Amino acid sequence: MAVSGAWRQMALGGVALCLLMMAVALGLEHIGGLEPCPLCVFQRIGVIATGVVLAVAAGHHPAGRSGRGLYALLALVAVAGGGFVAGRHVWLQSLPADQVPSCGPGLDYMLEVLPMQEVIATVLSGSGECANIAASFAGLSLPAWTLIGFIGLACFPLAMLWQAYRQTS
C-alpha cells in the first residue's frame, strides 16, 4: 500500500506544479498586462494537458503496473510536447534580429480560417511577436522559465513511471 500512496502523492505534486505554472501565467497576463503570444498559448495547453492527466491518474489510481505506467507515459508525452514548444520559443528568441520571421496573423484569426493542422504548423514555425522578449526575471525570458518548469514537471511522471515498473504486482 505504501507504493500506491507515494504514486498518488507524485501525481498530486505534479498537479500542484501545473497549478502554480498556470497561476503565474495568468497572473502575468491579467495582473501584469502581458498578452500571451501563440507559442505561449501552446505552452499553456501543455501545462493544462499534463495537469489533467496527472489529476485523473491521482483520482483513478489504477492498481496495476500497466495502468500506472500508461498514465505516467501520457503525462510525460504532454510534458514533452509543452517542453518542445517552450524550447522552440527560447530558440526563436535567441535568433539574431535579421533572422526573426515576420509577424503573422493572430491565433484567433488563424483558428477561424485555417485547418487545425495548418494552425499548429504556423504557430510552431514562430513569428516576430513570439521572438519579442516582453519580460525577464533573473536574466531569463519567460519562455526560458517555462522550459525550466517543464523540466521540473517531467520529474513527476518519470518518478511515477519508475515506481510503476518497480512494483511487484
Results as ranks from 00 to 15, higher is better:
67 G>Q: 00
48 I>Q: 07
114 L>G: 02
62 P>R: 00
150 F>L: 04
134 A>Y: 10
130 C>I: 04
38 P>D: 09
77 V>I: 15
30 H>I: 13
44 R>Y: 05
78 A>C: 15
129 E>C: 15
122 T>H: 03
116 M>Q: 08
72 A>Q: 01
55 A>I: 13
70 L>M: 13
113 V>R: 04
125 S>H: 13
99 Q>V: 05
92 L>G: 09
122 T>F: 05
115 P>F: 02
92 L>I: 11
40 C>Q: 04
69 G>K: 08
73 L>A: 13
150 F>E: 01
113 V>F: 10
50 T>E: 08
49 A>K: 06
82 G>N: 10
54 L>R: 09
129 E>T: 12
149 G>P: 03
97 A>W: 02
117 Q>S: 12
96 P>Y: 03
92 L>R: 04
54 L>M: 15
37 C>I: 04
93 Q>I: 14
24 V>I: 15
61 H>M: 05
90 V>Q: 04
84 F>V: 14
106 G>F: 01
95 L>E: 06
35 E>R: 04
113 V>C: 05
82 G>V: 12
81 G>S: 09
123 V>K: 01
120 I>W: 03
68 R>L: 06
80 A>L: 14
75 A>T: 02
22 M>K: 02
146 T>L: 12
88 R>W: 04
133 I>Q: 13
66 S>I: 14
58 A>W: 10
109 Y>R: 11
93 Q>G: 13
21 M>S: 11
82 G>E: 08
118 E>W: 06
49 A>H: 09
148 I>E: 04
24 V>Y: 02
24 V>M: 00
109 Y>A: 12
128 G>S: 06
128 G>I: 03
46 G>L: 04
115 P>L: 01
78 A>E: 00
65 R>W: 10
68 R>C: 09
62 P>V: 10
114 L>T: 02
125 S>C: 05
97 A>T: 05
63 A>E: 12
121 A>P: 05
91 W>E: 15
118 E>D: 14
152 G>T: 07
107 L>C: 06
48 I>T: 11
100 V>A: 01
95 L>G: 10
24 V>C: 06
104 G>M: 09
98 D>E: 15
116 M>I: 11
119 V>Y: 08
55 A>N: 08
42 F>I: 08
80 A>K: 07
61 H>W: 13
31 I>P: 02
117 Q>D: 14
151 I>F: 10
86 A>S: 12
132 N>M: 03
112 E>T: 12
90 V>E: 04
70 L>H: 00
89 H>F: 14
55 A>P: 15
84 F>L: 15
156 F>D: 06
32 G>A: 04
110 M>C: 08
35 E>I: 11
89 H>L: 03
49 A>T: 15
106 G>D: 13
110 M>A: 10
80 A>M: 13
45 I>S: 02
33 G>R: 04
87 G>P: 09
145 W>P: 11
78 A>N: 00
44 R>W: 09
134 A>Q: 14
70 L>P: 01
147 L>F: 10
152 G>C: 13
